[in-house]
């Protein structure tokens, strides 16, 4: 019989987050964040700062809470019934869960790209123009055209789709669809982009294109990416946070995490002893 309760690789006490979770000039900062799904706690006391114009990667085994944590940052968890959050999450020193804070405005400021490309059942053009139309960002057709073109160029998709702007977005390949979703997100000019395993459904070539795009975008935007792949975290991010069973175990510069992890769990994970 295998006793799953006693596995020394991951049966290690987690006291508090080690490494350097806090930085100066943070875009996002979270303090004592607990997340519950009904009675089940999914995140335990997460404290972390996310730096401006940086890419921060969140890694960890399946079910560790990294996606849940990401979805707290733009209040996407509001749409899930039975989910509630305690603690402080501040964007530019404003509490985003304050009762006067508007989730619609917040989500316009904090964009999100999902695991599975999810273009709307509309044309490529309308997909990109969607946010701008919602929020009334373009005052006329010419401005809107310009915005769509700019966003598509920025997402590196314009060349491929410029002749088929009015064809349905669902007709594109997976990688193109994901870049369309990125274009759609940057069209409303957010401050932060959250990416939830954006390349897990894509082939290596498409993945490489997206990764390059991320690095390019990080010059202007703050990016938080959840990824399953440690290599991807190492390739794109400046800082890395390691989650384990709902606990934020270690946060540090990506280099440090991958070369000299402080916590035993982090080391066990990145060296592949479990996961």
């Amino acid at each position: 019989m295998i006793d799953i309760e006693k596995r020394e690789e991951f049966d290690i006490e987690i006291d508090k987050t080690v490494g350097k979770p806090f930085i100066d000039d943070a875009k996002f900062s979270t303090r004592n964040v607990d997340v519950f799904y009904d009675d089940k706690q999914a995140i335990f006391d997460a404290n972390i700062d996310i730096g401006k114009n940086q890419i921060i990667a969140m890694i960890g085994p399946s079910g560790c809470g990294k996606s849940t944590f990401l979805r707290c940052l733009n209040r996407m968890n509001d749409t899930i019934q039975g989910c509630h959050i305690s603690g402080d999450i501040k964007l530019d020193n404003e509490d985003i869960y304050h009762k006067h804070q508007d989730p619609v405005l917040l989500r316009a400021r904090v964009g999100m790209v999902f695991q599975k490309p999810n273009p709307f059942p509309k044309s490529i053009y309308d997909n990109v123009a969607y946010g701008a139309k919602l929020h009334g960002l373009a005052s006329n057709k010419i401005e809107l055209d310009e915005l769509v073109e700019k966003s598509l160029i920025r997402a590196g998709l314009f060349k491929e789709v410029k002749d088929s702007l009015h064809k349905p977005g669902t007709g594109l390949s997976g990688g193109q669809q994901q870049r369309l979703c990125i274009a759609r997100t940057i069209a409303i000019d957010p401050e932060v982009i959250l990416m939830d395993e954006p390349t897990s459904a894509l082939d290596p070539i498409a993945t490489a294109v997206i990764e390059e795009l991320m690095i390019d975008l990080s010059k202007k935007y703050t990016i938080a990416i959840v990824t399953h792949s440690m290599q991807q975290a190492a390739r794109v991010s400046q800082r890395t946070a390691y989650f384990h069973m709902g606990h934020l175990v270690e946060v540090n510069d990506t280099n440090t995490v991958f070369t000299n992890p402080e916590h035993q769990l982090t080391e066990n994970y990145i060296t592949g002893r479990f996961g």
Partner: peptide, 17 residues
């Protein structure tokens, strides 16, 4: 996002709600 865009969005929020 520059302040301007945020303002535009804020202006229209009441109507949208």
């Amino acid at each position: 996002m520059n302040k301007n865009t945020t303002e535009i969005i804020k202006l229209k929020l009441a109507k949208r709600y």
